[in-house]
Amino acid sequence: MVATRSKSLRKMWGQATPYLLILPVVIYYAIFWVRPVIAVIIGSFTDASGVFTLQNFVMVFSDENFWPALNNTAIIVLFSVTIEFIGALFLALLINRKFFGSGIFLFLTLIPMALPAVATGAMWITGLTAHGWINSLLYYLGVLAEGEKIYWLGGIEPNPTKLLALVIIIDAWQVIPSMMIILLAGLQNLPKAAKEAGYVFGGNFMTVLRKITMPMLRPTIQTAVILRLISAIQIWLIIVLLLGFGRIPVLVERIVYYHEEVPGLNISYQMAAGYTIVVSTIVSLTALVYLRVSGAFKKEETA
């Protein structure tokens, strides 16, 4: 009797362990995060006098900037996450070869990630302006003739495609290192034996990568991509730094716009709340789809 009871207790205890380990997080979020979020959710479903309404979402969806913002965000996410993943994986595999000097090489590649916004802002603004360092460099290299200039951020004729491409490149430049360190951390623990076996059985670099390294790296890749996906959808700062509000609208930029640029409008709070809910819905749906497709959930169940 006593023995079985203690056994079942221990079993219960064993089942409770994961929940206990997660409990601190839940408490933490409950104290600092849940209340403001609920306030925003309520705010998005009420009008200025606190009455339930769906009008806020009607306003968001009929906002002339909503669809361009959604479109721009989608383009940025699609290209930047792809480019960043390939770049980050390439660098991580390279550094993981542990050649002489790879530690210093790693440090150098991490520099863009460590720069604060004030430095990156100054860097790109002084670079991309007509009399900036990029044009200066091209002039010294002989690419630009005297008096010839490239208007990187657009001349008189607005060219959204070019601007989006620039934003994607600049974003990738800064973000690749942060994605790379996750992948690199994951690569550390892959048993060398498996990889070596792959080569022994006649695999070349690509087949070993595809058949052995990538599958073993899967949890890390999922983490790196999902984290990047989430923040890529919420990109805004670099765009506002370079172009101000409204020229290339993106989703989170709209929230900031109503919070900080025009906070006084009668509809500012409602618009910001509405956009916030719409954005978080879009982000979570995208994340969910990615996790399902990449098999993050399925795999664990059987693990």
Binding site: T129, A130, H131, K149, L153, G154, I156, L243, G244, R247
Partner: peptide, 22 residues
């Protein structure tokens, strides 16, 4: 007459463009 500086849409203060002689 296209009299504005071509980068006009990126200017938030005229201090820097004037100093840079853009």
């Amino acid at each position: 007459a296209e009299g504005f500086v071509p980068t006009v849409l990126n200017i938030d203060s005229c201090v820097d463009p004037m100093m840079r002689e853009e």
